[in-house]
Each structure stands twice: as structure tokens, then as C-alpha cells.
């Protein structure tokens, strides 16, 4: 299965551990990712806050570049996923916007007809690879490990833009279960808790730190009180906020959280018995805890 890969800026920087685990597990799952040549930033939430048409235009450049390859574009980042998908939706829904985007792309020597399908890598792994195949590939059943799936917001919200859960859309916007099923396929126990799609604060962490930390605290507290050994996520910004800021959250709220926050591809890697270093687990700010290590060794 071959896809056009759109990494996004984060996995090339602070989320390099995500990329390392993707590089480690995707070949084993039969997924071939060919990086989109000379891709640019999707614009994220910031660009849209300043300029609308320009924001759609830079996002559309990636879709136009990808269209030449006639394959789905796959991204590991929730923000990239939402922005690219929303660009497609608006391109289809607003003729005036479509015309202007066409003109802008033309100025850069490109054209786009709206045919690039945008998918998140979780969707590809869950639906194209499938649970049965993953369960069959598991070398080390993660029995006894309680894993809280944290979807965050943007991966499940394009539901609205795509109008219905289909192959392209990931899951239910309020109560998604695809990562829950994946956790169970690795032999681990999926922790039931209510905050799995509650926002982590995203880029508010840069501008209104205390408010974002409050949101993170609530997520961590809910996961912990429901017995999670670790949290598994699919978004670079969620991972950054919950992992790197966890000690700061502890200082601000007097809490004592010590919950590793790993990427779902790292969890798959552990179940496929890949070495921790290859999966980028050494880069976590909150290291794997002793109970977690014991479970992994015993597995």
C-alpha cells in the first residue's frame, strides 16, 4: 500500500520521536510512505487567524502537488489533517473561493481539481492495514498495560466537514473508538475515561499558558484516576503539551502526575517488539515508569 506522505513541520522538529516510530513500524505493516516533494506548511490554526484566502492557498499548494501522484495524502498530524481536509471541503463548497484559489495556484505554476483525498495515518493503519493483521503481527502482547487513548480534538472534528464517517473520516467526533480497538489489538487494556476528545489547549500553551495547563491537568487527572499507566496520542501538539509541560502542570497545580504520553505508533512498535531507541522512546520528557517497564518486560 503506497501513499503520499505529508509529514508536517512538527514531526520534523519537536515531534521527531513520532517520525522515528512511524519509520520503524510502517514497513512492518506493509505501508509505504513516499514523502511529498517540497511540501510546505499547511498554515495550521495560526495562518487562518491572520489571512483566510492566503491560508487556504498555501494549504492547497500541497494538495495540488499531491494530485499529480494520484494517491491519498497521509499525514500524522491532526492539525495538518484538519487544515488540508477543510481546504478540500471549502474548495468544493464555495465556487468563488475555488476560482480565487485556482488563480493563486496558477501564479505558482500549479493547478488543482479537488481530487486529493486527505487521510490521517491512524485511519490508514486502522482501516487499510486492519485489526486482524495487526493482531497477527504482535510479537509481544502488552497484557496488563492500561492505556488511555487520547484523540484530542482536530483528528475527529473534520467529521463535520466530510459529512459522515466514511473511509476518509476517522471516527465519531465525540466518542471515537478506532484507537481503542488498536490498543486492544496489541493486547493492552483500553482505559475508559471521559476526556478522550477534550482539547489539550493546543497553541494556547504558547500564548495563555495557565489556561492550556488547566486543560492538560484535567486530561491527566481523568486518565490517572481511571488507572492509566500511560496515555497514547496521535497528535504532535497534544503530545508536546501533555508530555513536555507535565512537570510544569505539576508545579502549577500541586499535582504529582508521572504519566508517559506516547504516540500510538510507539505503542504498536512496542507490541511488535521493536527496540525502545528505534521508536524514539528515549526522547520522552516523562520517561516510561517502572510499572510500565515491568509490564513490558513481563510481556
Amino acid at each position: 500500500m503506497k501513499y503520499t506522505y505529508y509529514p508536517g513541520c512538527s514531526v520534523k522538529a519537536t515531534a521527531n520521536l513520532y517520525q522515528e516510530s512511524i519509520d520503524s513500524v510502517t514497513p512492518l505493516l506493509g505501508i509505504e510512505l513516499e514523502e511529498l516533494e517540497d511540501w510546505n506548511c499547511c498554515g495550521a490554526t495560526a495562518y487562518m487567524s491572520v489571512r483566510e484566502l492566503m491560508s487556504f492557498a498555501i494549504s492547497a499548494r500541497n494538495l495540488a502537488l499531491a494530485e499529480k501522484h494520484h494517491r491519498d495524502i497521509v499525514t500524522p498530524c491532526s492539525a495538518c489533517y484538519l487544515v488540508l481536509k477543510k481546504t478540500n471541503q471549502y474548495f468544493a463548497d464555495y465556487p468563488n473561493l475555488r476560482k480565487k484559489l485556482g488563480q493563486a495556484l496558477e501564479a505558482g505554476g500549479l493547478s488543482y481539481s479537488g481530487n486529493t483525498r486527505v487521510r490521517h495515518i491512524l485511519n490508514v493503519i486502522v482501516n487499510d492495514v486492519g485489526m486482524e493483521k495487526i493482531a497477527g503481527l504482535v510479537k509481544k502482547k502488552l497484557k496488563g498495560l492500561n492505556v488511555a487513548p487520547y484523540y484530542g480534538c482536530q483528528i475527529v472534528r473534520p467529521h463535520y466537514y466530510g459529512c459522515g464517517a466514511d473511509e476518509e473520516n476517522i471516527d465519531d467526533p465525540d466518542n471515537p473508538v478506532s484507537m481503542d480497538r488498536l490498543i486492544e489489538a496489541t493486547g493492552a487494556t483500553c482505559v475508559k475515561y471521559s476526556m478522550k476528545t477534550k482539547c489539550c489547549g493546543s497553541s494556547l500553551m504558547g500564548t495563555e499558558e495557565k489556561q492550556a495547563m488547566k486543560l492538560c491537568m484535567e486530561i491527566l487527572a481523568d486518565a490517572e484516576s481511571n488507572g492509566a499507566h500511560c496515555i497514547v496520542t496521535i497528535c504532535p501538539l497534544c503530545q508536546m503539551n501533555l508530555d513536555v509541560y507535565q512537570s510544569k502542570v505539576n508545579r502549577l497545580f500541586g499535582t504529582k502526575f508521572n504519566i508517559p504520553v506516547i504516540y500510538f505508533t510507539q505503542l504498536i512498535g512496542l507490541a511488535l517488539d521493536r527496540p525502545a531507541k528505534e521508536l524514539g522512546l528515549g526522547r520522552l520528557a516523562v520517561k516510561m515508569t517502572r510499572p510500565m517497564k515491568q509490564i513490558l518486560q513481563g510481556a
Binding site: 487556504f56 498555501i58 505558482g108
Partner: peptide, 20 residues
């Protein structure tokens, strides 16, 4: 940095002039 910075800027300039 991307290679096609000039092309990207041309796209942005055009979009700016057409801004909604």
C-alpha cells in the same frame, strides 16, 4: 526551508491581492 519559495510567495501574493 522549501525549494520553491519563489513559487510559494507568488501564490501568497496573488491570494493577497484577491483577498476575500
Amino acid at each position: 526551508r522549501i525549494k520553491a519559495r519563489n513559487e510559494l510567495r507568488a501564490i501568497i501574493r496573488k491570494a493577497k491581492s484577491e483577498s476575500l
